[in-house]
């Protein structure tokens, strides 16, 4: 469905952010993209959705194919129409609009029955139906996160790009939202590309994972395999070799060195 081949991204023609990133999202699958701050995860999503241009960024090498069509350096407004919806980081609601108006904006590109589309989204997020007429800016963090995901869903995408949906949410809420993401993936046959810091949650949801560091992909594999990778355990899941949570009581512990080339 989506294939990124060896792309290089520069901001302002000078700052090299991605160097030879390749990744693939197969039909109806969930792929997670992990990595530290500044690794280039968000930039990768923006390269796909065409939002790079708003920040003077550009794909300078390589290609991004979506259903056999090249979309790198495309226009974000057009990309939405192709079936790619990006849910940006940080719960970017349209603050002064109501919840339902936010959703309607999400369906801007979709012609046809808006009511039915709304009902479908309320089906996934029953909580949004209860607050449909409140001002989005005053909703709780969890509701806002549900709102921006639901708003992306309004575009009837075949691929959703989710940037840190768990950011700043209570663990219970994260679990609820990830559960809904799973049902969106299964019910709406929507593929998900998930950028997450919360590696444990991401890997339990995803089928496949990529790890990024310094603007390149350093590790990839099936989610199960990644979960058992010693480096992932140490650096992302916070477990030590024996599989137990790391204890700081044993003050003297040796820092494991990453086995990949960063």
């Amino acid at each position: 469905m989506l294939a990124i081949n060896n792309i290089e991204v520069k901001y302002s023609d000078i700052i090299l952010v991605l160097r030879g990133v390749s990744l693939e999202v197969p039909d109806e699958e969930i792929v997670s993209l992990m990595g530290n701050n500044g690794a280039g995860k968000t930039t990768t999503l923006k390269a796909i959705s065409g939002m790079l241009a708003t920040e003077l960024g550009k794909v300078t090498e390589g290609s991004i194919m979506f259903n056999g069509k090249r979309i790198e350096n495309g226009d974000a407004e057009v990309t939405v129409g192709l079936g790619i919806a990006q849910v940006m980081e940080g719960r970017r609601t349209l603050e002064h609009l109501t919840v339902e108006e936010n959703l309607r904006v999400g369906g801007y590109k979709v012609s046809g029955d808006a009511k039915k589309n709304l009902e479908r989204v309320y089906g996934y997020f029953p909580r949004l139906r209860d607050v449909r007429n409140s001002t989005a800016g005053y909703c709780s963090g969890g509701e806002q996160q549900m709102l921006v995901i639901g708003r992306g869903l309004m575009a009837r995408p075949t691929l959703m790009l989710l940037d840190e949906p768990s950011l700043g949410l209570a663990p219970l809420l994260v679990e609820e939202i990830f559960g809904i993401l799973k049902s969106i993936n299964q019910g709406a046959k929507t593929a998900l590309l998930l950028v997450e810091q919360n590696a444990l949650a991401a890997l339990s949801l995803a089928n496949y994972g990529y790890v990024m560091e310094n603007g390149r992909v350093v590790l990839d594999g099936a989610a199960e395999k990644l979960k058992n990778n010693e480096d992932i355990k140490e650096f992302y899941l916070g477990l030590n070799e024996v599989g137990k949570r790391k204890s700081y009581r044993e003050v003297k512990h040796y820092r494991r060195r990453k086995r990949w080339l960063g």
Binding site: S49, M88, R92, L94, V105, Y108, R151
Partner: peptide
């Protein structure tokens, strides 16, 4: 409200 969000949702800014 927000040019970037509008654009990402498909509004022809």
């Amino acid at each position: 409200e927000d040019h970037q969000v509008a654009k990402v949702l498909g509004v022809p800014v």
